[in-house]
Computed example of a mutant assay.
Amino acid sequence: MQLFSLLDLSPVPEGKTTADALANTVALARAAEAAGYHRYWLAEHHNMVGIASAATAVLIGHVANATNTMRIGAGGIMLPNHAPLVVAEQFGTLATLYDNRIDLGLGRAPGTDVATARALRRHMAPEDSFPQDVQELIGYFGDVPEGTAVRAIPGAGTHVPVWILGSSLYGAQLAAHLGLPYAFASHFAPAMLQEALDIYRATFKPSPALSEPYAMITVGVCAADTDTQARYLRSSQILAFARLFSGQPGKLPLPVDDIAAHVPAQILAQVQNALSCSATGSPATVKSQLETIIEKHRPDELLVTGMIHDHDARIRSFEIVADILTGMIEDEKTPGRRSHSAGISA
C-alpha cells in the first residue's frame, strides 16, 4: 500500500443544517489535502436528512475548486439513477475544469429507498443494464470521432478514470472482466471483502485502463488522543446506523457515554458487525488495528471514512490517521520490506 484516500458522506450533525455540512466538507477537504490524502471522494445518497451529498457532481466541483492537488471524485455515482450520457457530460465538464484530478466511481445500487428511486428514474427498467451502461459511459470518455452520432461534450477525449464499486461479488467480477480498478465498501458491508478481492485479483483481465488489478478497500476510522475519547466520538456513527437499521434515519446524533444504554442489544450487534472493518482509538490503537487490516487484505490503496459529530474532532481524527498511514508507508519503503502497491496513475 502506497496511497491513502478519504471518503466523505458530508454528514449533517444534529443541531446543524445542510449548509453547515457542506461548509464542513470543504474545510475537511482542505485539511485532507494538507495531510497528504491522495483522493477525496463523495457519495450519492438521496432523501436522507443526515447526508448532504445528493447532488454529487455539483459538490465534487465545489470541493475541486477549493483544493489544488488532491484527486476529487465520486465514491460513487449510482449509475442506474442516471443516463450514461448525462454522467459523461457532468464528469467530462469536471475533468475539463479540473484537469486530470477527477475520478468516477460507479455503483449499481440506487443509494436510496424504493420510492425515491422511482422518483429519480421515473420509468424503472426491470432488466439489469449496469454492465452495458458502464461500457457506454467509458466510451463517451474516449477519443470519439467527430462524425459520431452521439458524443459527450465536454467529455469526449477526457479519459476520466472509472472505478467499479461494490459490497458483494458482482462488482468484483465486473471490475475484473472490464479491467478496471475496484473499490470495496467494507466500511459498512465487510462480509464478502476477502472473497471479492480474491475473485477480482484471480480473474482480472488487463485493459487499456489498467494493466494489473488495483484494489482499494474502505475502512471506518475514529482516532483521538485516548481510546476512551475515540469510543465516545464513535458512538455518533453507531447511533446513526442503529437508527437507520431501525427504520428511523436522521441527522448524525450527538455522542453518548454508554452506547448500550441507547441501542437494543440485537440492533447493536448488527451495527457492530456492519462496522467491524474499522479502527477506533488512540494513535497507537488505531495503528495496530490498521496494520492488522492491511496485512490481512493487502489493498493497493486504503480509503478511510468516519462520521463524528464535532467538526474539529473529525478533522483531527483524519489528521491522526494520515500521520499513521504516512509512517506506515515510509516503513514499507525501508529496504528489506516488500512493497505491495501495484501503482495507478489515475
Rank of each mutant, 00 (worst) to 15 (best):
Y98D: 04
P110Q: 09
G220P: 01
H62N: 08
R314M: 08
H309D: 04
E127K: 15
A175N: 13
Y140S: 11
S207G: 12
Q237F: 07
T112A: 10
G50Q: 06
L106P: 11
L28C: 07
A54Y: 00
R108K: 15
L302C: 03
S207K: 12
Q272S: 07
P145H: 05
A54K: 01
A196Y: 05
V58W: 01
L180Y: 12
H309I: 10
I308P: 12
H309V: 06
S235D: 05
E33F: 12
P131G: 09
E301H: 11
G15H: 06
I77V: 15
I259M: 05
E44K: 11
E212K: 15
K333E: 01
I199T: 14
E319V: 15
D128Q: 15
A224Q: 02
A66M: 07
E33A: 06
G36Y: 14
H187N: 14
R231W: 13
C222S: 08
I60K: 00
Y37F: 14
N81Q: 15
A35S: 15
N68W: 01
K16N: 01
G73N: 11
A64G: 09
E146H: 11
R30G: 04
D143P: 01
A27M: 03
A261S: 09
E44C: 14
G327T: 13
K16E: 03
K16F: 08
E89G: 10
A31E: 10
A279N: 06
S235H: 00
L6G: 10
N65V: 01
D143F: 01
A88W: 06
G171M: 06
H297I: 03
D113C: 07
T69P: 07
T67L: 01
L252R: 00
D225L: 05
A172G: 03
G142N: 05
P154W: 03
G111I: 00
P249Y: 04
L137V: 13
E33S: 01
R298E: 09
E291W: 07
S129C: 08
V86M: 05
D300L: 06
A260W: 02
M192L: 15
P206W: 07
V114K: 08
D143Y: 09
D227H: 15
Q135D: 08
T280A: 02
Y232R: 05
I259Q: 07
L169H: 11
A55E: 04
L79H: 11
Q266H: 15
A64V: 10
Y182Q: 14
A185E: 10
W41S: 03
R121N: 12
Y232K: 02
V58K: 02
A117Y: 00
A117W: 02
T228A: 15
A35R: 09
A115N: 00
M48S: 00
E14G: 04
T25H: 02
I77D: 06
F241L: 02
R231Q: 09
H62Y: 07
P126M: 09
P206H: 04
Y98K: 10
C222Y: 02
A322Y: 13
L42Y: 09
V304S: 14
D258N: 14
A34L: 13
N273V: 11
A242V: 11
G250I: 02
H45G: 13
G105P: 04
I329C: 06
D300Y: 00
T305R: 13
A54T: 05
P145T: 03
A125H: 13
K251S: 03
E136H: 08
S278L: 04
Q2D: 08
M307L: 07
